[in-house]
Structures are given as structure tokens and as C-alpha cells.
């Protein structure tokens, strides 16, 4: 073995996404003829989820597959590029931007000074919205007490009239159950379903309208630079395939879970009309500019993003 990569995930060991990432790790081993060994570590196993960037830079772990918005506190630009709420309505749209629309170059321009190299992006897909109140459009968000994580999502919902509550993931379930909050930004439908969130909040919105996190696959820059070109290419191409694999497998799981929820009854799945989705999108994109003003890099992200979306006729 020439290279061992310890890669920490932002997913827990029992979550389907972690298994998908482990399968990717095994494939990299095969594709490289055993020259690269990737060891996937579950979330928080070596360092906490928000600390992986520092740990990679310090050479403690070698890489991560994680939500870039966890590093919003380092630079608001990370929050904007990770989840420009309203920009993407499908994984392929985001992946095209990263691969061909300047996203990749931008990520590396931002990450390399920290000592990381960005290999590629993947995503679990559009997150479904968890709610105990029926929501059929933007107007229903008014006064909705909802949990939102760090990053742009919180601000967008505030702009849409909701009252974001900043409680941690560990209290989402009990708070939903006891009606301390009405709704929560959690994750994809199938995982929300498995965690029992729909048992206590019976009005999910699917497909989601609010968030699609970008997970970055990055490694320590020195380690990357020390790799021969063929191994670098193997990693790049394998990450491109991981993106497709993750999207496909999780979308299937989502659809299966939705079908099951429909068959079992008890849960009312709400789907927003194109009109309502556009309304939310408008509110969301109006927030981008605000974030862009917060740092030089955020402005760069904003410019690149808007240029790409305009060229593609998406805005």
C-alpha cells in the first residue's frame, strides 16, 4: 500500500449513507490495485463534525466527506456554496455547477489556503421538510416555529416569515414530539422516516423545497500533492461515481419510504406547487446578496454562482 487515507464522514455508522461511503472506499482500493486504502470513520469518531477541517489541515486525519456548511464559521463563503438555498432543484444541477461551472476551482481556491484539497462534491439529495402542521405554501410558514441548523437555511426561513429556533439535532425529536417546535429541517425523507420523525410530525413536505447540502470530499493537500497522477485521477473519477451512486441509492430509498408511508397512512405528504416553490426560491435568492457581503470569498461564490445560473438560463 502506498497511501492510507483515514476519511471521517459526517454520517453515523448506522445510516445508509455511511454504508454507501464505505462501498466507495472499497472500490477505490480495487481500482487502485490496492495502492490506496481508504478507511471510512463515522461522524465524531476522531474529532467532532465541525472540527474535521482543522484535523485534516493538522494531518491528524487525511480527509472528510462532510457538509461544507459546517465551516461557515470559518468563512461565510462555505455556507453559501454548500447550500445556496433555492439554486438547485436536483442533485445533477449542483453537480454540473461544481464539475463544469467553476465550482470545483472555486472550492480549491478557498480550501487550499487551509491546507485541504477538494476532490469532488456529492449530495444526499433534496432534504424533505419535517412538520407537524400542514404546509402547502410560503404563506403557511408564517410564524412557524422550526428548527434550522447553522448556515443560510436559518436566514432564508426567517426571511420567509418563519421563527427559526436554534436547537441542536439531539433535541429535535423530543422537541417535535412535545410540540416545542412545529417543524424541523432534518435530512432526506427515508432517514427522517427511519428516525421516527414522521411519527411525531405527520405533515412532511416531499420533495423538499428548502435545502440540498453539498458534501465535499476533500483530503490533506500535502498528501494529495504527493500522489501520482493516476491515483489522483482514480480518486477524482471514483468521487464522481460516488455522487451518482449516493443520489441513486438514496432517491430509491426515499421513494420506497414515501410509498410505504402512503400505504400505511397516518402521514400526509405535502407537495408544493411549482408556483409556491418559485415564491420560496425568490425569497431565498434575495438572501444570497446579504451573505455575499460578509467576506471576499463569499462575494466570489456569489459572482460565480450568478454568472453560471444566468448563462444556463436558470435565473
Amino acid at each position: 500500500q502506498e497511501f492510507t487515507l483515514k476519511v471521517q464522514s459526517s454520517d453515523a455508522a448506522g445510516v445508509p449513507n455511511f454504508v454507501i461511503e464505505q462501498e466507495w472506499a472499497a472500490r477505490v482500493g480495487k481500482m487502485s490495485g490496492g495502492r490506496i486504502a481508504v478507511e471510512m470513520l463515522p461522524v465524531n469518531s476522531v474529532v467532532e463534525h465541525a472540527e474535521t477541517q482543522d484535523a485534516i489541515a493538522a494531518g491528524i486525519i487525511d480527509g472528510h466527506i462532510t457538509d461544507t456548511s459546517y465551516f461557515t464559521g470559518k468563512d461565510p463563503a462555505f455556507g453559501l456554496i454548500a447550500n445556496p438555498v433555492g439554486a438547485w432543484s436536483a442533485p445533477s444541477e449542483m453537480l454540473r455547477f461544481v464539475e463544469y461551472g467553476g465550482g470545483k476551482e472555486l472550492m480549491n481556491e478557498m480550501l487550499e489556503p487551509y491546507g485541504l484539497h477538494f476532490i469532488g462534491a456529492v449530495t444526499p439529495g433534496l432534504e424533505a421538510f419535517v412538520s407537524s402542521k400542514p404546509l402547502d405554501g410560503v404563506a403557511d410558514l408564517k410564524g412557524l416555529k422550526m428548527r434550522a441548523p447553522e448556515g443560510m437555511v436559518q436566514e432564508v426561513f426567517a426571511a420567509a416569515g418563519a421563527s427559526p429556533v436554534n436547537i441542536p439535532q439531539s433535541e429535535v425529536f423530543t422537541s417535535l414530539d412535545k410540540k416545542v417546535i412545529d417543524a424541523a429541517d432534518a435530512t432526506v425523507f427515508s432517514t427522517n422516516q427511519a428516525m421516527g420523525l414522521h411519527d411525531v410530525a405527520k405533515h412532511p413536505v416531499y420533495p423538499g423545497f428548502h435545502s440540498m447540502p453539498m458534501l465535499e470530499v476533500s483530503v490533506n493537500k500535502e498528501k494529495w500533492d504527493s500522489m501520482p497522477e493516476d491515483l489522483q485521477t482514480i480518486l477524482e473519477v471514483s468521487v464522481r461515481d460516488l455522487a451518482r451512486d449516493m443520489d441513486a441509492q438514496l432517491a430509491m430509498k426515499d421513494m420506497e419510504a414515501v410509498a410505504k408511508a402512503r400505504a400505511e397512512g397516518g402521514v400526509t405528504i405535502h407537495n408544493w406547487s411549482a408556483e409556491e416553490r418559485n415564491k420560496f426560491r425568490k425569497i431565498a435568492t434575495s438572501q444570497w446578496e446579504k451573505v455575499a457581503g460578509r467576506s471576499e470569498n463569499a462575494q466570489k461564490v456569489y459572482d460565480t454562482l450568478v454568472k453560471y445560473l444566468t448563462a444556463q438560463g436558470m435565473i
Binding site: D54, A57, A58, F71, T72
Partner: peptide, 29 residues
């Protein structure tokens, strides 16, 4: 100290306290 170097300075050397990244975005970390 090594940790503070990453949390209190930008890679270029400018002072920037790591923030929570939330809408409130306090420099608590």
C-alpha cells in the same frame, strides 16, 4: 495554541475569530 492559530486567524494571517456560523453568528468558538 495550534488550535487557536486556526480559530483566530485566517490562512493569510488576518485576525478572524471562528464564529458559530448561525444567523446570530457569534464568535463563540
Amino acid at each position: 495554541w495550534l488550535m487557536v492559530k486556526r480559530a483566530a486567524f485566517k490562512p493569510g494571517g488576518d485576525i478572524h475569530l471562528e464564529t458559530t456560523g448561525s444567523a446570530f453568528n457569534a464568535p463563540y468558538p
